[in-house]
Design a protein around this nucleic acid. Structure first.
Ligand code: SF4
Ligand code: SF4
Lengths: 143, 143
DNA sequence: AAAAAAGATGTATTTTTTATACATCTTTAT
DNA sequence: ATAAAGATGTATAAAAAATACATCTTTTTT
């Protein structure tokens, strides 16, 4: 059981961007901060932008800013969007389920309940909660 | 985010075995019930046996029985054993973590808390809970 | 003793998913 | 025009998971 690296990268992009209040940040500087190829960050940024968490501006002096206040960026929602696939079990994917006991199986409800508990925790936090020690984070990011 | 098919197969083996109280069951019949190759079931059975959830007997009239009462087989523990890897994030794997903000990052604690909530639910259930409607399950398994 | 039925072990292959890289746009301030 | 930024599409590589194959060993029955 793992989350995708892209999901984590997405949160890093949001955290990095949040350290620079209204100032624009570039894909390049995020990539260099975390020692990740700009290529990956680029894709993550694209998705975050489509989901309207950030606003991007092309061209010279372009860059990225948050599209809303950190208090309005919910961690659970970010993870749901980045992690497209939550088919923890075969029977969660109606289209491909071939398990014969599905109609009577309690296991699927137990796992479903566990997954809900997982998200219930995530849904309680926003980007603002992650930025509570903004200065400390900024220092580690070598700003 | 997915569980491995093997993890689910392991639970199916346990549920199937639980429907036949003390009677031995064979890998072949489990495989045929769920339309899965015996090869996969064999591996799962091997792991379940090593973890002492089931007892296997070789030879003619051999087969599988539960090694303990369904009330003593905790779902969370089965999943923890079958699913070896819970490195939801890069920083969860000390050996390979290169994330620069790890010392100050709150995200990792949020995800950790969510994962705990996930297991806390699973830890509340045992195989016995899944067998509450044993007859219904048995019918779907064509017994 | 031989045969058959069961599980044990080890290894190899294939498929799927995820991660990564490359090439080529488009936009915009200077 | 040019340079600096992001946008898009596609291709490749690496890792993980799923699947298959071959060959044991154990035990009961005949
Ligand atoms: S055994 Fe239960 S949980 Fe697993 S795939 Fe079948 S219905 Fe779903
Ligand atoms: S950003 Fe936080 S959660 Fe993600 S790898 Fe770094 S320390 Fe871990």
């Amino acid at each position: 059981m793992r989350l995708k690296k892209y999901t984590d990268y997405a949160l890093r992009v949001l955290m990095y961007t949040a350290t620079k209040n209204e100032e624009k940040v570039s894909i390049k500087e995020i990539a260099e901060t975390f020692f990740i190829s700009s290529e990956h960050i680029r894709k993550v940024v694209h998705q975050l932008s489509k989901a309207e968490y950030i606003e991007t501006t092309r061209g010279r002096n372009g860059g990225i800013v948050l599209a809303k206040s950190p208090t309005d960026i919910n961690i659970g929602s970010v993870i749901r969007i980045m992690e497209n696939d939550f088919y923890l079990l075969e029977c969660f994917d109606d289209g491909h389920n071939q398990c014969v006991i599905t109609p009577a199986c309690h296991l699927r409800h137990v796992i479903g309940e566990a997954m809900n508990a997982f998200f219930q925790v995530l849904d309680q936090y926003t980007l603002a909660d992650l930025m509570e020690n903004k200065e400390e984070l900024r220092a580690l990011m070598n700003q």
